[in-house]
Amino acid sequence: EVHFESHGEEQAMRVVKMLKKRNLTVEVKVENNKWIITAK
């Protein structure tokens, strides 16, 4: 499981795309203006 924190939507979306290319399940949450990305 991979956790990634991002402060910007643009950066977060880039990471999500990259993770999805690896056929991982990606969950995105926004907490306290931080984008929290979890990949399994």
Rank of each mutant, 00 (worst) to 15 (best):
E1N: 10
E1Y: 13
E1H: 13
E1C: 14
E1F: 13
E1S: 10
E1A: 11
E1T: 12
V2M: 12
V2S: 06
V2N: 06
V2D: 04
V2E: 07
V2G: 05
V2R: 07
V2W: 15
V2L: 14
H3K: 11
H3G: 04
H3M: 12
H3W: 12
H3R: 14
H3Y: 13
H3I: 14
H3S: 10
H3Q: 08
H3E: 06
F4S: 03
F4D: 04
F4M: 06
F4G: 02
F4R: 05
F4L: 06
F4W: 11
F4N: 04
F4E: 03
F4C: 15
E5A: 06
E5M: 09
E5Q: 06
E5D: 04
E5C: 14
E5H: 09
E5K: 05
S6R: 12
S6W: 08
S6Q: 06
S6F: 15
S6D: 02
S6N: 04
S6E: 12
S6A: 15
S6Y: 15
S6I: 15
S6L: 15
S6C: 15
H7P: 09
H7Q: 10
H7L: 11
H7Y: 14
H7M: 12
H7K: 09
H7G: 07
H7V: 11
H7I: 10
H7W: 15
G8A: 13
G8W: 14
G8C: 15
G8Y: 15
G8N: 15
G8M: 13
G8I: 14
E9G: 08
E9N: 04
E9C: 15
E9P: 11
E9K: 13
E9H: 11
E9I: 13
E10I: 08
E10R: 10
E10S: 09
E10T: 07
E10Q: 08
E10L: 13
E10K: 12
E10A: 13
E10V: 09
E10W: 12
Q11V: 08
Q11C: 15
Q11N: 07
Q11P: 05
Q11W: 12
Q11A: 13
Q11T: 08
Q11E: 14
Q11R: 07
Q11S: 09
Q11Y: 09
Q11F: 10
Q11D: 13
Q11L: 13
A12N: 01
A12V: 06
A12K: 02
A12F: 07
A12S: 02
A12R: 03
M13T: 04
M13E: 06
M13I: 07
M13F: 04
M13K: 10
M13L: 07
M13S: 05
M13P: 01
R14Q: 09
R14G: 04
R14I: 13
R14C: 15
R14S: 07
R14Y: 05
R14W: 07
R14P: 01
V15R: 02
V15F: 08
V15T: 06
V15G: 01
V15S: 01
V15N: 03
V15P: 00
V15L: 15
V16Q: 01
V16N: 02
V16S: 03
V16A: 05
V16M: 02
V16E: 04
V16P: 02
V16G: 01
K17F: 14
K17W: 14
K17T: 09
K17G: 12
K17I: 15
K17E: 15
K17M: 10
K17C: 15
K17H: 09
K17D: 15
K17V: 15
K17L: 13
M18A: 12
M18R: 10
M18Y: 12
M18L: 11
M18N: 10
M18W: 14
M18G: 08
M18E: 13
M18T: 05
M18Q: 09
L19N: 03
L19Q: 03
L19M: 03
L19I: 01
L19Y: 02
L19K: 01
L19F: 04
L19P: 05
K20A: 08
K20D: 07
K20S: 06
K20C: 13
K20H: 06
K20M: 11
K20Y: 04
K21I: 09
K21N: 11
K21A: 13
K21P: 02
K21G: 12
K21R: 09
K21V: 09
K21E: 14
K21M: 11
K21C: 15
K21S: 12
K21H: 08
K21Q: 10
R22H: 14
R22F: 14
R22E: 06
R22A: 13
R22C: 15
R22P: 02
R22V: 11
R22W: 15
R22I: 14
R22Y: 14
R22M: 14
R22L: 15
R22S: 10
N23I: 04
N23D: 08
N23Q: 07
N23F: 15
N23L: 09
N23C: 14
N23K: 10
N23T: 04
N23W: 14
N23R: 10
N23P: 00
N23G: 15
L24P: 01
L24M: 12
L24W: 14
L24R: 03
L24F: 14
L24H: 04
T25A: 09
T25L: 12
T25V: 12
T25K: 10
T25Y: 11
T25D: 08
T25Q: 12
V26W: 03
V26L: 04
V26N: 00
V26E: 00
V26G: 00
V26Y: 05
V26P: 02
V26I: 09
E27N: 07
E27R: 07
E27C: 12
E27L: 10
E27D: 09
E27K: 06
E27M: 10
E27A: 06
E27P: 00
V28D: 00
V28F: 06
V28G: 00
V28N: 00
V28R: 00
V28H: 00
V28Y: 05
V28M: 05
V28Q: 00
V28P: 00
V28K: 00
K29S: 08
K29G: 03
K29T: 08
K29E: 03
K29V: 10
K29C: 14
K29F: 10
K29Q: 09
K29I: 09
K29W: 10
K29Y: 11
V30W: 13
V30N: 06
V30F: 14
V30D: 01
V30Q: 09
V30K: 10
V30M: 09
V30T: 05
V30P: 01
V30R: 09
V30H: 09
V30G: 01
E31P: 00
E31C: 06
E31R: 06
E31S: 05
E31I: 14
E31A: 06
E31N: 06
E31H: 07
E31K: 05
E31Y: 06
N32H: 06
N32V: 02
N32T: 02
N32W: 04
N32K: 08
N32F: 05
N32L: 04
N32P: 02
N33C: 11
N33I: 03
N33A: 02
N33F: 07
N33E: 08
N33M: 06
N33D: 12
N33P: 02
N33V: 02
K34P: 00
K34V: 12
K34L: 10
K34D: 03
K34Y: 08
W35V: 04
W35R: 00
W35G: 01
W35M: 02
W35P: 01
W35H: 01
W35Q: 01
W35N: 00
W35C: 07
W35E: 00
W35D: 01
I36L: 07
I36N: 03
I36M: 04
I36R: 03
I36D: 02
I36H: 05
I36Y: 09
I36T: 04
I37G: 00
I37W: 00
I37P: 01
I37K: 00
I37T: 01
I37V: 10
I37H: 00
I37M: 00
I37E: 01
I37R: 00
T38K: 05
T38L: 05
T38Q: 03
T38P: 00
T38Y: 04
T38A: 04
T38W: 03
T38S: 07
A39Y: 08
A39F: 11
A39V: 15
A39C: 11
A39K: 00
A39I: 14
A39N: 01
A39W: 13
A39G: 07
A39M: 08
A39T: 06
A39P: 01
K40A: 09
K40R: 11
K40V: 09
K40E: 04
K40S: 11
K40H: 13
K40T: 11
K40D: 03
K40W: 14
K40I: 12
